[in-house]
C-alpha cells in the first residue's frame, strides 16, 4: 500500500512540473485539473492505508462536488 502511494506521489510530480513549465495557458489548466483529480484519489488511498474512513469521506466529498472546477 505504501508502495502505491509513493508511486502516486512520483506521478503527481509530472503535472506539477507541466504546470510550472507550461507556456500555453490551457496546457496549464489541464495540468491543474489533473493534479486535482490525482490528489483526490490519493486521499482515498491514504484513508485505506490508515484504515480511517473519516479521511475517505473528505475524498468522496471532493470528488462529488466537482474536483478541479
Amino acid at each position: 500500500m505504501t508502495a502505491f502511494l509513493v508511486i502516486m506521489l512520483l506521478i503527481l510530480g509530472i503535472p506539477l512540473y507541466a504546470a510550472w513549465k507550461g507556456e500555453h495557458i490551457w496546457s496549464k489548466m489541464l495540468a491543474f485539473a489533473s493534479i486535482a483529480t490525482k490528489a483526490a484519489i490519493m486521499i482515498l488511498l491514504v484513508s485505506v492505508q490508515r484504515d480511517d474512513w473519516m479521511i475517505g469521506i473528505v475524498g468522496i466529498i471532493i470528488l462529488s462536488v466537482g474536483n478541479g472546477a
Binding site: 506521478i11 509530472i14 503535472p15 490525482k38
Partner: peptide, 17 residues
Amino acid sequence: LFLWLWGTWPLVGRRSP
C-alpha cells in the same frame, strides 16, 4: 497507476492542448 503514468506523460510534451 499504469494508466495514470502513461496518460500523464504527454503533458510535458509540446503538443496541442
